[in-house]
Design a protein around this nucleic acid. Structure first.
Lengths: 246, 246
DNA sequence: AAATTGGATCCTGGATCCAATTTAGAGTAT
DNA sequence: ATACTCTAAATTGGATCCAGGATCCAATTT
């Protein structure tokens, strides 16, 4: 009989934390990192006392850190019941691509004329690193960094902030599903073509590449999720989808 | 005589959605309202102790409330220095309009085919209420509600969430400055024309109206802010450029 | 045996106390 | 007078303690 695995926090954090900053900030960023890259999977309940002892502090800074992470959408807190890591909702992932198709081409258009050689070199470095990266976490992170390198000079801080939010969402999603999705080699060609167009400063071609890239990514994920839904019942043990358990 | 049925409690009590008035929640919403209304003007420093005694509680729930308001962008908290109410839209923050020009037309486009008569009636009700509203707070709120009524059926929750964030920013700004800006009669015509186009289902016309509306609003605010800056520093000082200080 | 109830235990919310940091002010020297 | 230093008050950050709600389990009832 399939027991549902209850995630715990054992061995998630390395005990190295240096108190360079305020405790609540250290804890907040540590928890955010851990949630983002999947070391703390969705649905995990976060006990204040447990986290406090893990970091060697009292529950107080933990509480403030949890409060902020809740506002950032990473946690769900219920009164007297505690904090639970937010589930990855498939619909949210799809919605994100709709938003990104609006925001990112505009950011690229604004940024393109101001891109320096250094920016392009950094983007290129991301691609070479992407080629030899193996684990999903690194792949997802490099993917985000590549995109941001191209948008960086857009000059609209609010726009860039929103894009970063969306990319963080995607990064978290990919960290969980990339290995099961079959790498996505076509995304690599898209990236190369996009960088190439950006190098030549060809706005319309770059925008077209970017739009195609995002559309294909959306299509791939949509297919992947549909397959998962179909395979959910007959196949014995498809990769777990967050929120599936009871 | 039929036996009297055994009475039960089903349906006697409304399933109250606010089970417990936690102090931190009460304080959070009270502070948010006060900040949005302008009872607490921008740049005001918020002392934890002062708020705590005002609400008859300790500083603890105040701290958690402040922490969340910070994440919502209404406060700015610095370590050991405390919380100050965030400044309103200024010259640097005008790029929210650039974002809105991307997000809102798309939301309208997606929503337009699914708008029901009820939706249109609600939007219309907002406009009639707008016509007789006098205070800035009501005007600003109705403006937001009118826009959201038209976007409501877009079907992309993430998109709608982002738009609500942007509209909330504008609402707070308008509450403060609408009276000084000269009401904005042209905005009213814009709204009428937009609703009219939405009623007829004419997508291209509705989108054009909306884009024009947003552009004009941006233009009006930009002008207003420029005038304020000039009036603030008559002759002697050069007008402050954002980011110039220090 | 199933359902309801009483209660032990765990966990969170809030209060109070202490430590760390900033800020204001007094005092002194230049 | 101005600038600088040092101290004390004010304010925030964190620890500890207690109260209240949630959850689980045994005891009692039906």
């Amino acid at each position: 009989m399939p027991r549902k695995p209850i995630p715990t926090l054992s061995g998630v954090f390395t005990p190295t934390e240096t108190p360079a900053h305020l405790a609540r900030d250290v804890i907040e960023s540590a928890l955010r990192e851990a949630i983002m890259d999947g070391r703390i999977p969705p649905e995990t309940p976060l006990r204040q006392e447990e986290i406090a002892t893990l970091f060697g502090v009292s529950r107080m800074p933990v509480r403030e850190a949890l409060r902020r992470l809740e506002s950032q959408g990473l946690l769900h807190i219920q009164p007297y019941k505690g904090a639970v890591v937010t589930a990855l909702i498939n619909q949210d992932a799809m919605d994100t691509y709709g938003v990104r198709l609006l925001l990112e081409p505009e950011a690229l258009r604004l940024s393109l004329p101001h891109l320096s050689d250094t920016d392009l070199a950094e983007a290129s470095a991301c691609l070479t690193a992407l080629r030899r990266a193996r684990d999903s976490a690194t792949l997802a992170r490099l993917n985000r960094e590549f995109h941001m390198a191209l948008y960086r000079r857009a000059g609209n801080a609010r726009l860039l902030y929103l894009i970063e939010q969306e990319l963080a969402q995607e990064e978290r999603f990919l960290r969980f599903h990339l290995s099961a999705m079959g790498t996505g080699h076509q995304a690599h060609d898209d990236h190369e073509a996009l960088l190439d167009a950006a190098r030549s400063g060809d706005e319309s071609r770059a925008l077209a590449r970017l739009r195609r890239h995002l559309s294909q990514a959306e299509h791939a994920i949509r297919h992947y999720l549909a397959d998962q839904d179909n395979a959910a019942s007959p196949a014995g043990d498809a990769p777990r989808i967050a929120g599936e358990s009871k």
